[in-house]
Amino acid sequence: MSFSDQELNRLQKALKKAHFDKEQVDVGTVWKWDAMRTIRNLPASASSFSWLSEWNALVWKFAMTTAALLLVLSTWSLQMGVDPEMEMAWMLFEDPVEETVNDTFGF
C-alpha cells in the first residue's frame, strides 16, 4: 500500500487533534495540598540557599576586584619600566628582619 502526501497530511491533522484533546484529562486537587506541605518544609533550606548564592556573589565580586587591581598594577609597572615580576616580588617578599640585622651589625 503506498502512502500519499495527502494521506500523511490527514493523519498528521488527526494526531494534532489527539494532542489537543489531551487537555480533557481530569486531574484531582490533592497534589496542591502535597505541594504546599513540601513547600512549608522548605523555607530553612530555601533561605540558606539564597544566603549561599549571596555569599557566592560576594566572593565572585572580590575575586574580580582583585584581578582588576592586579591588572592595573602590572600595567602601571610596565609603563614605569619595571619588570612586573620583580616589582611584585619586591612588594611581597621584602624581608624587614634582614634589614634590621644588617643595620645592627653594620653589614
Binding site: E23, V25, V27, V30, W31, K32, A35, I39, L42, A46
Partner: peptide, 22 residues
Amino acid sequence: KKHLPPDQIEETAQEVFVRAYQ
C-alpha cells in the same frame, strides 16, 4: 496535560510549584 502521560500530571504539577517556589 499536553506533554505528559495522565498518571504523571499530578506529581509533576507538584514538582513545578515546588521548583517555582525555590
